[in-house]
Nucleic acid binder design. Structure first.
Length: 297
DNA sequence: AGTGGGACCTGTCCGC
DNA sequence: TGCGGACAGGTCCCAC
């Protein structure tokens, strides 16, 4: 699942069940996902309490009583669902609404949520690009997963100034710079396309063009910072369900089909007022970019 | 150094 | 209906 808004939505969905629960047992159904599970993964969690859930970039973090942090990344296709005592799957935007093939249920956290009350949190991931790890809290920031991560786009650091400073002198395409987690951590393919469209910036222009010759931010740099934040916040408000397979079980369309101005809209009309252009698709760094060649310059 | 491209793995969709 | 190919939210690694 994916980009920052989806991970944030997952965090909010899991928190009421996961936080303060005691992990009675961990069912680990295969030795690896994208990477092998760390040694003793299930045993190191069994009997421990989860003290807090948080998010850094696209990583979901569970603080485990005793000092470890359970690090979870959803890759491209990972999702969680909650099963409670009555065996009902919790509804809500954080879990795929379509039933999941149980053969891809790779990890099950068996929880004691209150005395005499249990629940299960199930991790399902068909493509297995996700992964889980256990890292001691004090060394978390120095771990290779986190050491080189850039700023949080929803934190206080994102501004036209920082974009200009980070990108100054860089010839790489703006799209590639925004996707690089070393600069801004948490943006993915969909929201980069959307934020660039909102700002009227071409994904192909050099990233360094957001800075003037003296290193000051251009007007567009400031607008881009605002639009990145707005795009992410709106997606979180909408439930972060930017997933292709978010079709509801009753057959109505999920959020995916309705929400994007450019992503996956090749050949359709640009929604910029008065533009009249047509959304095009191009490939950058082996990934699809959707944009309007008429109003994104 | 900074790029682009392939690899990882499964599912889905589209055209023949 | 079957089959091959393209494509999908992310990231790592390795050639240029």
């Amino acid at each position: 699942m994916p980009e920052l808004p989806e991970v944030e939505t997952v965090k909010r969905g899991l928190a009421p069940t996961f936080e303060n629960a005691r992990i009675a047992r961990v069912e680990q159904n295969r030795p690896d996902l994208r990477f092998p599970f760390p040694a003793g993964f299930a045993d190191r969690l069994a009997g421990r309490r989860v003290s807090a859930l948080s998010r850094r970039s696209k990583y979901l973090l569970a603080d485990i009583e005793g000092g470890d942090v359970l690090v979870m990344h959803l890759g491209m296709s990972g999702s969680f669902r909650i099963e409670n005592d009555s065996r009902q799957t919790m509804p809500g935007g954080f879990a795929h609404e379509r039933s999941k093939d149980p053969k891809h249920d790779h990890v099950v956290f068996h929880l004691e949520t209150a005395p005499g009350s249990t629940a299960r949190i199930v991790y399902n991931d068909p493509r297995r690009f996700g992964f889980m790890d256990l890292i001691a809290r004090p060394s978390l920031a120095d771990h290779p997963y986190f050491r080189e991560l850039g700023l949080e786009p929803l934190g206080n650091d994102l501004s036209g100034e920082t974009l200009a400073r980070l990108f100054a002198g860089r010839k790489m395409p703006l799209k590639a710079a925004l996707l690089n987690q070393k600069f801004i951590a948490g943006l993915g393919n969909i929201y980069v396309c959307e934020a660039l469209w909102r700002t009227g910036l071409s994904p192909e222009r050099a990233a360094g063009t957001l800075a003037t010759g003296t290193g000051r931010p251009t007007k567009k740099a400031g607008e881009l910072a605002v639009n990145i934040r707005a795009t992410l916040e709106e997606a979180i408000r909408a439930g972060g369900s930017s997933l292709r397979d978010h079709t509801r079980t009753d057959g109505t369309l999920g959020y995916f089909q309705h929400s994007f101005a450019v992503y996956d809209r090749e050949g359709e009309a640009c929604r910029t007022t008065g533009c009249g252009g047509t959304i095009a698709r191009l490939v950058q760094s082996s990934r699809s970019t959707f944009y309007c060649p008429s109003c994104q310059t």
